[in-house]
Computed example of a mutant assay.
Amino acid sequence: MALWSEERPSEDVHRVLEPDGSLVGDPPDLDDDELRELYWTMKLTRAFEDRALRMQRSGEVSIISRCRGEEATPLGAAAALDPGDWCFPLYRQRSALVYWGVPLDRQLANLMGAEPETVDEHLPFDDRPEPPVNFSPGYIPLGANLPNTVGSALADKLNDRETVSLTFVGDGSTSEGDFHDALNFAGVFEVPAVFVCQNNQWAISVPAHRQTAAETFAQKGDAYGVPNERVDGNDVLAVYQTLKDAVDRARDGGGPTFVECVTYRVVEHNTADEPSVYRDDDLREEWLERDPIDRFEAYLLAEGVLTDDEIESMAADIDEEVQAAVDAAREVPRSEPERMFDNHLRGESWKESHQRAELRRELDGENPFTDWTGEGFE
């Protein structure tokens, strides 16, 4: 049994803002425009995901994993990067993509099963600059991006580039072998990589205390000689401050850092999940009171960075931006089903050829459960 108290909000973390938005530590050196941008990004991310959820319920989107209540962790981490750096997200880091300008309509089109890269010239996806931070595709295989990040960082180190590679890992994915391989390699070769554990305390229906007997996830870095920190993942200023130090350290040749951001998954794992069968609603309510947007908004209002009128105006602008993204994404034609096989391997394996043939027969209305000679499988 872990030494921590299952999923109760922890006080043993670095924090700049209390849950009520009051200062408890020194804030990072960000001007008012940068603070507004962080707030705008979290609000836009939440509005976008709320709309995507409604589209999923109506059948336009097949499935979605939201970062509601966790927006501060990926945002604060991504904001610490510089143009030219690399970010390897999973599927719950949308605020990171939004912050660096990955277009909402592209993101939504992908959720709808369409490919903006293949559309006609008259559609609004062409001729837009790529985001200044390099993003890998969002990965579903958990843990796979950890060694990819180490490889990216090692390549930059060997080529004397001042570039940092940052990735995310869930609390559950720390049980994957890729996690241990990546941290060990990063520690031995002192690569410029930053690993962010977005500890939302649930790996689908498995609680965090079933993943480790260690007191914290952060301390797992000790085994590999990787410096580590533990931060309040619902405090965007604390996340940014901690990750900025880690990114700067990596860029200056100081090697990797592992940061655990303690947050909570207040929604379902994805839209195929029903959390009420395994989770305590009273505990969820306790975490809802620590909402990262409400906390940051209270701080900005108290500091005079924002006014109530400005917040109301922002909400209207965000609604318009989300609607424009929906309208544009709906214009993108659906991708050909066989595109799912592209870019998996260099060349084509027998299994892939077989799966392509099965898909073609299914699309043609034939029985896919036959071999290539037409005989049924026994």
Rank of each mutant, 00 (worst) to 15 (best):
R8S: 13
E11Y: 03
D12V: 11
H14L: 15
V16P: 05
E18N: 15
G25Q: 09
P27N: 07
L30Y: 06
D31Q: 03
K43F: 06
L44S: 12
R46K: 12
L53N: 06
Q56I: 07
R57A: 09
S65I: 05
P74L: 08
A79F: 07
A79T: 07
L81F: 04
R94A: 02
A96S: 13
L111K: 12
F125T: 00
D126N: 13
Y139T: 15
G143A: 05
P147Y: 10
D156V: 11
L158Y: 12
N159E: 11
D160K: 14
E162A: 13
T163Y: 07
S165M: 03
L166Q: 02
S175T: 13
H209G: 02
A213H: 14
E215R: 15
A223C: 03
D232G: 06
A238M: 00
Y240R: 07
K244Y: 01
D245F: 06
D248Q: 14
V259C: 05
C261Y: 01
T271A: 11
Y278S: 05
R284E: 10
E285R: 11
E286Y: 05
E289D: 12
L301M: 02
D327Y: 00
A328F: 00
P337D: 10
W350S: 04
Q355W: 07
L359A: 09
E362R: 10
L363Q: 09
D364I: 07
F369Q: 14
T370E: 13
E378F: 10
